[in-house]
Design a protein around this nucleic acid. Structure first.
Lengths: 69, 69
DNA sequence: CTTTATTGTAACATATACATTACATCATTC
DNA sequence: GAATGATGTAATGTATATGTTACAATAAAG
């Protein structure tokens, strides 16, 4: 699960704690998602986009074939 | 959970059954997602995109403020 | 060198995404 | 008018996303 959450978060100048609060989850959840250790739900993906002012494609898109490499 | 999975599926000329097979889930899961009755994981969203040749933003984006209306 | 902020991660609990089986409805087709 | 394909949905089970609590490591700050 390669994604760009950490990049988006840093660009938005948020800590994991702050992003967690804005998105309604815990800091641990943000940490694990950044580390690629699990597979967030669409709702949470959208909340992360709103909090960082980016789109789903910008943060979460993975080209076909690059996903489970 | 408003999304455009059904529109994308019909444009790709797939039945629920065929889309389910391509994405590795059951027909019931596809049906419930189309009906907005739950909140798919990012992995499954990506599989649906690949199977229908569309992007995350095209199928799953919801503008801030329109989500939990 | 203690304090504080940020991040990683482990153990255990809970909520929910998804599977399985099954049955119903509605078209179409033979 | 039985048979078949497409879809909706309900009951129950399993896997996993997420919460809670807690501890460790690092770096900056005082």
């Amino acid at each position: 699960m390669k994604n760009k959450v950490k990049i988006a978060r840093v660009q938005a100048e948020l800590t994991q704690q702050q992003l967690a609060k804005k998105t309604g989850v815990t800091r641990q959840t943000i940490s694990l998602i950044e580390k690629g250790k699990y597979n967030p739900t669409l709702n949470l993906c959208l909340e992360i986009c709103y909090a960082t002012n980016q789109s789903l494609d910008e943060i979460f898109w993975i080209p076909k074939g690059e996903k489970d490499v």
